[in-house]
């Protein structure tokens, strides 16, 4: 009679992977708006550019791998990688920096591992780390100053396009500068906190507008938790660890970056809610997520404080990606009916 016989369950919840990816991407919108409002068109242009490159690279490699292109493009994972990279890169980064980072992220750190779900490292962060070590100049000087700092409106759309695509970097001279994290770290070595704040970069504003960006990402992240797309474990663990480290080792504002700068500057919130929580490369057990998040928080503090780079979300996340499978193996939850959790690897027979 040809009845349909499929295995149970015969019903399915409303969720889908494409939807999950789309929701995560949408949750970055508050952050994107804040970035655009404070730093000009650069970020928005980057996001669009990165998305285009991401989708194009994904499609190209899917063709090479003889996979159904539209089916996989619809999972929105390439799109999300593009969005995250666009948000993370400096607003005035030349177009080729963005293009290299994005295509490397998609091709090498995702598709060459077998595509979505099989990559051990966060693709966006691999792309970011690549351009950070390859093009340190562009990656540190192409940051924009916020309108709060400059006291003037942001650079116009046409000029921004010209800076990014035509290499007319000089146009951005008046609008760009080191990030507050970078500046504070360098200046505090020679002066006191009060002196630093008096400097032009800060103009009396500790976070130089970044606090709004971070708060906007925080809002987006909380929405994700409420929608049960991500769980609280990783962001909470990461921010707590960062806070704790800062209070324990970096409490002296005249020597170290202060806590408020750690939390509300740079890519902290973007990292905590959108990057560290990338499910594919993170730990997946409840306890594992706490350890994983805390690890990122600690590494972030260590690299920011004693390392060569002003910000360190990419490296911290990548380092913990290494540890995730190991963490998972040792943090299995206790199963119903078992007196204690079974952890570790199976004994070799």
């Amino acid at each position: 009679m040809g009845l349909l016989t499929l295995s149970s369950p015969h019903t399915h919840g409303p969720n889908s992977t494409s939807k999950v990816m789309a929701i995560v991407a949408l949750a970055t919108v508050p952050g994107l708006i804040a970035m655009t409002a404070l730093f000009g068109w650069g970020t928005l242009i980057n996001v669009v550019l990165a998305c285009a490159v991401a989708l194009a690279s994904e499609a190209a490699i899917l063709l090479l791998r003889k996979r159904p292109v539209s089916f996989f493009l619809k999972d929105n994972s390439a799109l999300l990688t593009g969005v995250l990279l666009g948000l993370a890169l400096p607003p005035f980064a030349p177009f080729w920096v963005t293009a290299v980072a994005t295509s490397f992220a998609i091709v090498f750190s995702k598709q060459l591992y077998g595509g979505m779900g099989n990559n051990p490292f966060n693709p966006a962060m691999v792309g970011y780390a690549l351009v950070l070590v390859s093009f340190p100049v562009q990656m540190t000087t192409a940051w924009a100053l916020s309108t709060q700092m400059t006291g003037a409106p942001a650079m116009g759309f046409a000029d921004t396009l010209s800076v990014i695509f035509a290499g007319n970097a000089h146009l951005a001279d008046a609008f760009s500068g080191a990030t507050p994290l970078d500046a504070y770290k360098h200046l505090i070595a020679k002066s006191t906190s009060d002196d630093v704040l008096a400097q032009a970069t800060f103009n009396g504003w500790l976070n130089g507008g970044w606090e709004w960006v971070n708060i906007a990402f925080l809002v987006g992240g909380v929405l994700l938790i409420l929608r049960r797309i991500i769980t609280w474990h990783i962001p909470v663990a990461m921010l707590s660890a960062l806070t704790l480290c800062s209070l324990m080792f970096g409490w002296d504002e005249d020597m170290y970056t202060p806590l408020s700068l750690h939390l509300l500057s740079g890519a902290t919130m973007l990292g905590a809610f959108f990057i560290a929580t990338d499910p594919v490369t993170a730990s997946t057990t409840p306890l594992g997520k706490l350890i994983y998040g805390a690890g990122i928080g600690i590494l972030l503090f260590v690299i920011r404080t004693w390392g060569a780079y002003p910000d360190a979300v990419a490296f911290a996340v990548l380092l913990m990606n290494f540890a995730a499978p190991f963490i998972d193996a040792y943090t299995q939850p206790r199963t119903y009916g078992h007196s204690k959790a079974r952890r570790g690897l199976p004994e070799k027979k």
Binding site: N15, T17, M116, T231, T285, K289, Y336
Partner: peptide, 18 residues
Amino acid sequence: MACIRCGMCSEACPAELL
């Protein structure tokens, strides 16, 4: 589609499995 290790399954599992 591929598993994205989102962990939604383990949150739903009544036997507390992964």
